[in-house]
Simulated assay, not measured.
Amino acid sequence: MKILVTGTAGFIGYHLIKRLLERGDEVVGLDNINDYYDLRVKYGRLEETGIENAENIDYGKLIQSKKYDNYKFIKLNLEDREAITKLFEKEKFDKVCNLAAQAGVRYSLTNPYAYIDSNIVGFVNLLEACRHNDVKHLAYASSSSVYGLNETMPFSVHDNVDHPISLYAASKKSNELMAHTYSHLYNLPTTGLRFFTVYGPWGRPDMALFLFTKAILEGKPIDVFNYGEMKRDFTYIDDIVEGVIRVIDNPPKGDPNWSGKQPDPGSSKAPYKIYNIGNNNPVKLMDFIEAIENAIGKKAEKNMLPIQPGDVPATYADVTDLIEDLGYKPATPIEEGINNFVKWYREFYNV
Rank of each mutant, 00 (worst) to 15 (best):
P282A: 05
L177C: 01
V312F: 08
G310Q: 14
H132R: 15
V157E: 15
K86R: 15
K95P: 05
P271K: 11
N70G: 09
M286F: 08
H15E: 15
D25I: 09
F93S: 01
D31P: 01
L305P: 05
N56M: 01
N34T: 08
E89S: 05
T49I: 15
Y328E: 09
A314S: 14
H15C: 12
E22T: 07
P164Q: 06
I277A: 07
E218K: 07
A300P: 00
S156F: 09
G7S: 04
G266H: 05
L78P: 08
D311K: 09
L87D: 03
E22A: 12
Y68G: 13
K269P: 00
T320K: 14
K42T: 02
F155V: 07
H163I: 13
L138K: 09
S144N: 13
A170I: 05
S118N: 13
F288A: 00
I338K: 11
P221G: 06
I17L: 14
M286C: 01
I323N: 03
F341T: 04
P201W: 08
D80Y: 01
M207Y: 13
T8G: 12
N279T: 08
L285S: 06
F225C: 11
P205L: 03
L167K: 12
N53H: 11
L76C: 06
L177M: 15
